[in-house]
Design a protein around this nucleic acid. Structure first.
Lengths: 171, 171
DNA sequence: TATTGTTATACTCTATAACTATA
DNA sequence: TATAGTTATAGAGTATAACAATA
């Protein structure tokens, strides 16, 4: 894979944590640094900056299963909370119900999930993994754990732990 | 504005920090909490969760100027670093040059920026704000500062400061 | 040969609105 | 009336590829 060759190439430069660095297309000569100005005062800017890098890495590591972050989070929640409705899953993940409907349609097409009529409220669907979905999720979780290790290499284990604690505590 | 009435309505419930909370469409009855399972171990999940809320709030607060986060960051950098090329701006912000070209085209259509031929490298364009762009950016920065205050209310000033320091230090 | 900027395409995600069927 | 889910549309963001001009 392209990722493998890239990683080994960068490893040669003896910077093990450089693999995820945001510096594509290195310029021929170093330029004067750019002043971030007001961006330095925005949480959103830094959140977005890191999130883009992390998601890009996620896509690379999960490429063999062709799973995107949103699909991953939905699969994990269905696996750990079988029988919940689309409304409940969507609310927790902050995914619009319209978007979730299409996302689930794709997961169903792959035969990873099934939607059964709810016993109580006839409007809602109860979500479950299929047997194939359960097997796929096991593999996917393994790759996701590998991804998280790469994130940990990028951030440093200590900073990663601090960051999770901080973000988890947000109301 | 709809936001104002919403904030005051929620303020009545004596939860001043609830204005940005992720709980649209409150269910009639509380359900059993959903188990986040493996998501609890992913920095990316928490990053994304907060970033979506923060960007949504940004859009609301900057709605009167019709400015999106990416446009804001580009305007700020051009304002603080006049004469830089598209390649330099795009690299810092991690915006694809193809996407940046279209984004700048839109800013130019609004007469907020101008692209002049570089004196040195004839391939590159030097980016500047127009007079109108300078005036617009002043107003935009004022709104962005207001936005950041709302973020600070959501996170708590102390946690916001910690978060910025942590994210800023990421390599 | 490589880089800068442009145009084009495909796909994902976000935000709406309109619709049905249930409650 | 309100909610659960579906379908559709428009716009933003991401990832590519191909191209002309210049280095």
């Amino acid at each position: 894979m392209g990722q493998q060759s890239r990683r080994s190439a960068e490893a040669e430069s003896s910077e093990s944590r450089a693999s995820l660095k945001v510096r594509a297309r290195l310029p021929h000569r170093e330029r004067k640094p750019i002043n971030l100005d007001a961006l330095n005062g925005h949480v959103g800017y830094f959140l977005r900056r890191l999130q883009v890098v992390v998601f890009r890495e996620f896509l690379r590591t999960l490429a063999e299963m062709n799973v995107r972050p949103a699909q991953y989070s939905v699969l994990v929640l269905i696996g750990a909370n079988p029988g919940r409705s689309q409304a409940e899953i969507g609310e927790v993940l902050n995914i619009e119900r319209a978007r979730l409907a299409r996302l689930l349609h794709e997961l169903q097409r792959r035969d990873w999930i099934q939607r059964l009529a709810s016993t109580g409220d006839l409007r809602s669907h109860s979500l479950f993994l299929t047997n194939e979905g359960t097997r796929a999720l096991a593999r996917i979780k393994m790759l996701a754990a590998r991804h998280e290790m790469q994130v940990s290499e990028l951030l440093g284990a200590k900073r990663r732990k601090l960051l999770i604690e901080l973000l988890q505590a947000v109301p």
